[in-house]
């Protein structure tokens, strides 16, 4: 049995705060590179103009005065806690939310969360609560990945319980249908996160986790990587293009995650990320 390592909750707050403050201004390097690649490949003149504007928007935001997008997102937090860690000095959830609260306030980020979905829809005023996914993992470290997820693209996600007989072709059609219906609303070009397998709730989290990978990094399983490449080509064949003004670059990457499922089921979920892909990671 490993030694127990104490981590102060304040360290978690600090990490979350810093990530919120950084990612909304400075788009990650892999996303900067992906937009540049799309600019090189785009065949439509208006598509190239749009991508040039997105590059300027990235550069302007990186100067630190204006966030990349006014929708500074749901704050989604993936936290992997080593089982040999003992968190002291506060509650983990509170620590994360305090990081969001202070980070959003001090970096002039928008409060975009309402306290309830259908009654008063009163804005909580500080972008809390965060949407937290916790895993207990081996080791004595804490890994925190924060994603500022825009609501417009989130709204275009879809989830289906297909039949096993629908097979791989059914999955491909579902992904294409989702990207087609999202059209301009999801601010293309973006990343398509696909979850296949699991059950009703796991498949949605798979799709979200798929978005957290480095942009365009293929899945280690060659069968999944081949599916990603095929979906990438087909999504771009839709011709939607940057801002849906027509073009060859509709998606920057398709990431697929899979897991075991039931003999009766073929769950599939598609989570769309817009070109404002804002994520970062800290290890404590």
């Amino acid at each position: 049995m490993g030694q127990v390592r104490e981590v102060d909750a304040a360290e978690i707050t600090r990490a979350v705060r810093e990530l919120c403050m950084e990612i909304n201004y400075k788009v990650p390097e892999d996303m900067v590179a992906a937009i540049k690649r799309a600019r090189e490949k785009e065949e439509s003149p208006i598509g190239r103009q749009i991508l040039d504007l997105l590059i300027r928007n990235q550069e302007l935001a990186a100067e630190g005065e204006y966030p990349y997008c006014q929708d500074t997102g749901y704050t989604v937090v993936f936290i992997d806690v080593g089982q040999d860690v003992h968190i002291v000095g506060g509650d983990l959830t509170d620590a994360i939310n305090e990081g969001v609260r202070s980070g959003y306030r001090d970096a002039y980020l928008r409060a975009s969360i309402v306290a309830d979905p259908v009654f008063e829809r009163r804005n909580t005023g500080d972008n809390t609560p965060a949407f937290i996914h916790t895993r207990i993992v081996p080791g004595d470290q804490i890994r925190i990945q924060v994603d500022a997820k825009g609501g417009g693209s989130e709204n275009k996600g879809r989830h289906a319980m297909l039949k096993p007989s629908d097979g791989l072709e059914g999955v491909k059609r579902f992904v294409l249908r989702t990207v087609e219906e999202a059209g301009p609303d999801a601010c293309p070009p973006g990343i398509i996160g696909v979850g296949i397998g699991g059950n009703f709730e796991y498949v949605a989290i798979l799709a979200k986790r798929a978005l957290m990978r480095k942009v365009g990094q293929p899945h280690p399983d060659p069968r999944v990587a081949e599916l990603e490449a095929e979906l990438f080509e087909k999504c771009n064949a839709l011709g939607i293009g940057p801002q849906s003004l027509g073009g060859t670059q509709t998606v920057l990457a398709v990431h697929v995650e899979t897991m075991a499922t039931h003999i009766a089921s073929l769950p599939v979920a598609v989570n769309i990320e817009c070109h404002a892909h804002r994520t970062g990671t800290r290890v404590i």
Binding site: L53, N57, Y68, C69, Q70, D71, C187
Partner: peptide
């Protein structure tokens, strides 16, 4: 321009 908040 969707997502072009800084430029706007």
């Amino acid at each position: 321009l969707g997502g072009g908040g800084a430029l706007a």
